[in-house]
Design a protein around this nucleic acid. Structure first.
Length: 580
RNA sequence: CGGCUCGUAGCUCAGCUGGCAGAGCACGUGACUCUUAAUCAUGGGGUCGAGGGUUCGAGCCCCUCCGAGCCGACCA
């Protein structure tokens, strides 16, 4: 790798790396470094009057240094937090040889390096619990400078705020930006909270296929892939609903799965192409039971995470205290538009849409039109958790018909902060009805709805063997994490949100330049001047221009090379033109 | 897919009406034995996202492209 491509700071770090090796210090040692404490444990458990923690060993990343001649303060950051360390030359180097302090620590260690220290805990004159270092071990040298983020009195200075930087180099975001690791720890605690609840009820966590021959269970465009030895298309799952119901057919009472789903659709602050959904199915229950269970579940998550049912979100506060408001879809539409759509046919609904300035398409059926009205006029108003219940039958092909009204289904969605969070049904278990519903979907598909569901014959076969009455619920884990951690974008609760690939600039190898007769000593210069490919050199119209640039670069950087003659440069260009 | 905004040193950001490319932190060198956004002195560091155009002269004006964010469209 060419040293020319490195920034000044990177070059200095590489030189330090070499210097450490010359001193017989392996910058990347293999041996385990035994620690016996973490930064937060030290802060929590040190009592000066007890004189405890006199023999600690701790490892982490060097995050700041304040060098004052023969004594220094520094901070190391481990997985739990930061702790200040105090290094004194004559303690670190009790003998005559002061290399470890003067040369290794002061000259060749940098912010970002991993070190291990052993020593005793004390409190400095200004009152900060610190580790007085007696022994220092280099554990891993960092070759790239980290962004420097400073903090005082809880105020953060120079935080890395560029979203592109943060998401593409999440590892850096996690290291330097305070609080980012906390968000992801909380995300995991949400999963733990849910899992604990489900397990306590005796429900079984299962895994079902991600690669599916028929992408079922939701209305969405799938990603498609291909299996070579079977020579058939496979789809990345858009939902796992149909598989979990097969397991209920198989006799489990309750099953749940945390499922990575994939949808080939747009991306925005609440949509990533791959996302996590938790789906749960419980036999002998209905959607009314599931509503109670969902309330219990969400309230528990809020309590486990915040110790409170009130959760701050943006400039609002969201209360997850049971019970949540329950309102039927038709009543919600009445409330926010003043229109009562009870009993309306497709044409009347289309008329309502027009009068409300909602765009419609001819492919939309009755269910889609109602959904459109709700989505446009109601959903965004629902900030506090609200169950919307009893959806029109056309938009819920896997859901049982309402016990009192055949036009409706026993379905609810939980809306929080104007967005769908949960979706649940009394599951349709009548195989004949289910077959007809799939066929209606087929008609929608023929009408041009490219999200209508496929017919899954094997799923129908399973239902024909008999499925007990069952209620199922799905919850968007990413959106739940957003709300519970007060993050504005789904990208903030995914470690690695989907991004366009970074463009890496193409650079030709040396041999291409040599082939054109360019002497080896000039190749780096020419590349440094911006001619990273031989193609780019070819674009030079006058050899004198390139000649001048080369000579200028030679002089400016004191390379001490003998300049080529203009004629020589002209020959290079001719060679290149012949070659390509 | 459309509208708006942004892209300048490792990071955060200035950059006027088009006239030598700037600051703080970081980095190098020197001073300093309890500092904490350490301090003091001093020095280096730039393809101004890429390409083209206008101009005597472009970080700045115009066009094209790339990447990102926000709003909308589509979509759960």
């Amino acid at each position: 790798m060419s040293q020319f491509e490195l920034s000044e700071q990177e070059q200095i770090r590489r030189e330090s790396l070499e210097e450490l090796r010359k001193l017989g210090i392996n910058p990347y040692p293999a041996a385990e470094f035994k620690t016996n404490i973490t930064s937060t444990e030290i802060k929590k458990s040190f009592h000066p009057d007890k004189n405890n923690l006199q023999d600690v060993s701790i490892a982490g990343r060097l995050m700041s240094r304040r060098i004052m001649g023969s004594a220094s303060f520094a901070e190391i950051q481990d997985s739990k937090g930061r702790i200040q360390i105090y290094l004194r030359r004559d303690d670190l180097c009790p003998d005559d040889d002061k290399t470890m302090y003067n040369t290794v620590f002061k000259k060749h260690l940098d912010i970002g390096d991993f070190i291990g220290v052993e020593g005793f805990v004390f409190i400095t004159q200004v009152g900060e619990i610190s580790v007085h270092v007696k022994k220092l071990t280099v554990l891993s040298k960092s070759l790239r400078p980290l962004p420097i983020v400073k903090e005082k009195d809880g105020k953060v200075y120079d935080a890395v705020s560029d979203p592109e930087f943060r998401y593409r180099q999440r590892y850096v975001d996690l290291v330097v930006n305070p609080g980012v690791r906390e968000i992801f720890k909380k995300r995991t605690r949400i999963l733990d909270s849910l899992r604990t609840l489900f397990n306590s009820k005796g429900y079984l966590e299962v895994e079902t296929p991600i690669l599916q021959p028929i992408p079922g269970g939701a209305a969405a465009r799938p990603f498609i892939t291909h299996h070579n030895s079977l020579d058939m298309p496979l789809y990345l799952r858009i939902a796992n609903e149909l598989y979990l119901k097969r397991l209920i057919v198989g006799g489990f009472e309750g099953v749940y799965e945390f499922s990575k789903d994939f949808r080939n659709e747009g991306m925005d602050r609440s949509h990533n192409p791959e996302f996590t959904v938790m789906e749960i199915y419980v036999a002998y229950k209905d959607y009314l039971w599931m509503m109670d269970f969902t309330e219990e579940m969400i309230e528990k998550v809020a309590l486990d995470l915040h110790g409170s049912t009130t959760v701050p979100y943006n400039d609002k506060e969201i209360s997850f205290k049971r019970p949540f408001r329950r309102i039927s879809m038709i009543d919600a539409i009445k409330e926010y538009t003043g229109v009562d759509i009870t009993g309306m046919n497709e044409d009347q609904l289309r008329e309502v849409c027009n009068s409300l300035d909602i765009e419609t398409e001819s492919s939309m059926g009755k269910g889609k039109l109602i959904d459109e009205i709700f989505g446009e006029k109601c959903e965004s108003h629902l900030i506090q958790p609200t169950f919307i219940i009893d959806y029109p039958i056309e938009m819920s092909p896997l859901c049982k018909r309402h016990r009192n009204n055949p036009e409706l289904t026993e379905r609810f969605e939980l809306i929080v902060n104007g967005k769908e969070l949960c979706n649940a049904y009394s599951e349709l278990n009548d195989p004949i009805d289910q077959r007809e519903r799939f066929q209606d979907q087929l008609k929608l598909s023929e009408k041009g709805d490219n999200e209508a569901m496929f017919i899954d014959q094997d799923f129908l076969r399973a239902l024909e063997y008999g499925m007990p009455p069952t209620s199922g619920m799905g919850i968007g884990i990413d959106r739940l994490a957003m709300i519970m951690t007060n993050q504005p974008s789904i990208q903030d609760v995914l470690f690695f949100p989907q991004m366009r690939p970074e463009k890496t600039e193409k650079m030709d190898g040396k041999e291409k330049y040599l082939k054109a007769g360019i002497p080896e000593e000039w190749v780096e210069t020419i590349q440094k001047l911006g001619y990273k490919t031989i193609e780019k050199v070819k674009m030079v119209d006058k050899h004198t221009k390139l000649h001048q640039e080369i000579c200028g670069f030679n002089k400016k950087n004191s390379l001490g090379l003998k300049n080529p003659s203009p004629d020589e440069v002209a020959v290079w260009l001719e060679n290149i033109k012949k070659l390509i």
